[in-house]
Simulated assay, not measured.
Amino acid sequence: MRKILATAATFGLASLGVIVPATSAQASVNCDYAWNNAALGYFYAYAAQGCTDYLGRSSGNDSDWGNSTGGFQGSDTNRAGSILHKGTSGMAVQVFNGTGTDWAGGHTCIKQSEYYMSILFPHSFTSGYQVSDAISSHRWVWASECDKFLDS
């Protein structure tokens, strides 16, 4: 009888794996794939967690993801769920929840050594607002210019 219960429990737990959505481990696997296939020198953003649903990429600064110039355009603003850093300069990428070349407002940074953030929730900007679905601009800066990093 114990063998039957143990077998039933094992099959029950195994079937949960089919029902439960992807975990952060799966998101990391997807970002590993994206990072390995990304072009050198670019910062990437994706609408979904796990570096899926590509939004755009940029090798330079983009002060407004919602306009029609730069690597991110139109509906890209306030949609990023994951980001990837494949820069080669050693600089960090500073992301903002505001727009404009004054680079004011809440921000956070991703270091080149971090490669990617597969899930932006529950990270926050220096303003306290959540980063997920709230990035509106970015620029390349030296890490010493960052007040906060996504890994902290």
Rank of each mutant, 00 (worst) to 15 (best):
C109Y: 02
C109R: 02
S68R: 12
D102T: 15
M91P: 02
G100C: 12
G74I: 07
F72S: 01
K86E: 07
E114I: 06
F72G: 01
K86L: 05
A80Y: 05
G90P: 07
G66W: 02
R79W: 03
Y115F: 13
L84F: 00
K86R: 15
A92F: 04
T108M: 10
I83W: 01
A104D: 11
T77F: 05
I110A: 07
I110R: 04
D62A: 06
H107E: 07
T88S: 15
L84W: 00
E114A: 14
T99C: 08
M91Y: 12
A104H: 07
W65R: 07
D62P: 05
S63W: 09
G105S: 04
N97S: 13
T99R: 14
N67Q: 08
S82K: 00
T101F: 07
H107P: 03
H107R: 09
G70I: 02
G87A: 09
H107L: 05
L84C: 00
R79F: 02
G66H: 06
Q73W: 05
G98Y: 10
G87K: 09
S63C: 11
N78R: 15
W65H: 11
Y115E: 13
N67M: 11
D62I: 06
S68F: 09
C109G: 05
G105I: 02
H107G: 05
G105L: 04
T69P: 04
S113G: 10
G74V: 08
I83H: 02
G105E: 00
V95C: 09
